[in-house]
């Protein structure tokens, strides 16, 4: 059941959002999903063009021009915009670099808001407790000082110089490493992390979370990988590692209350390790974004 929320937030209404990965779609077979409380249908035409329209398949509105929604393919996903797009889809230059393996690792439904998913994605301090023996382990719990910047021209947040001890940083890791992370937030509901590639220490693996808000408190998180990995013969081994990670985050995200992200600074208690999330919350306030957040100062 979708929450009956009108898209009264022009900020998110005029943004491009992901609604599905295209990997496993059979051309000509329509499917249903939702975006911002709006039921949507989508199909790939025989020539591979995405066609998206409002309504349910049973409504048979696919030919109704008024129901059509602007759509495009990018990075292996169908992106749509319900309103008038003010900005293009952000650039992921790694996606077209030589020698990278690009794939959708998983699309998973989560009973929480989109900003909660993004904020968790930007967090290192939970690694030893949630991703035990993979991305962190006790007693190595310290988050050292890192740098956070907002770039007004690109409208992006960057967190750099982030270091964390990891027992098994990726599917290709064999031993513990002090891993370097960079985080980039180019869209209120999307974030990208870059981390040392175990196969090539001169390059960084890129992992993006693209969050599709079904409604304010239910989302699908799509995980895009663009990695350097010569060890794992099959994509599925790379995917499975990321599925394990996201599966570990799921019970945390679904037990976070309230589900919508509170922007009132007194709602929760930040520490220095939360510098990037403090910046993210401030940015959402300044964007005047309303969807999936609690703005009021109670």
């Amino acid at each position: 059941m979708l929450q009956n929320v009108n898209p009264t937030d022009p900020v998110v209404y005029n943004l491009w959002h992901v609604i599905t990965a295209v990997d496993d779609l059979t051309p000509g077979v329509p499917q249903e999903t939702a975006l911002l409380g709006e039921p949507l249908c989508f199909v790939l035409s025989e020539s591979g063009e995405p066609i998206v329209w409002k309504g349910k398949i049973a409504d048979q509105t696919s030919e109704d021009k008024n129901a059509r929604v602007r759509a495009q393919l990018k990075y292996g996903y169908i992106w749509v915009v319900l309103g008038e797009p003010e900005f293009e889809i952000f650039d992921i230059p790694e996606y077209v670099e030589d020698g990278r393996r690009n794939m959708n690792a998983i699309s998973v439904g989560l009973n929480t808001s989109a900003p909660r998913v993004v904020e968790n994605f930007l967090d290192m301090a939970h690694f030893p407790f949630v991703h035990t023996d993979l991305l962190g382990e006790e007693p190595h719990t310290e988050v050292s000082e890192y740098d956070v910047d907002y770039n007004p021209e690109e409208r992006e947040i960057w967190a750099t110089n982030c270091w964390f001890y990891q027992p098994k940083a990726s599917a290709a890791s064999e031993e513990g490493v002090l891993a370097e992370y960079k985080y980039r937030v180019p869209h209120p509901f999307c974030a990208i992390l870059y981390k040392t590639s175990p196969d090539d220490d001169t390059r960084l693996d890129a992992i993006a979370v693209l969050v599709q808000p079904l409604d304010e408190t239910r989302v699908r998180a799509h995980l895009l990988l663009s990695v350097i990995d010569h060890q794992n013969e099959l994509d599925k081994h790379i995917r499975l590692f990321q599925q394990t990670i996201l599966g570990q985050d799921k019970p945390i995200l679904e037990n976070q209350m309230p589900r919508r992200l509170p922007l009132n600074p007194r709602a929760e208690t930040p520490i220095r390790a939360d510098k990037v999330s403090i910046m993210y919350r401030r940015w959402l306030r300044e964007l005047d974004l309303h969807y999936g957040v609690i703005r009021e100062v109670a």
Binding site: P265, R266, E268, T269, P270, I271, I278
Partner: peptide, 10 residues
């Protein structure tokens, strides 16, 4: 709500 002095980075 948390105390006002905890709302900023401590």
């Amino acid at each position: 709500q948390v105390e006002a002095d905890l709302a900023t980075m401590p």
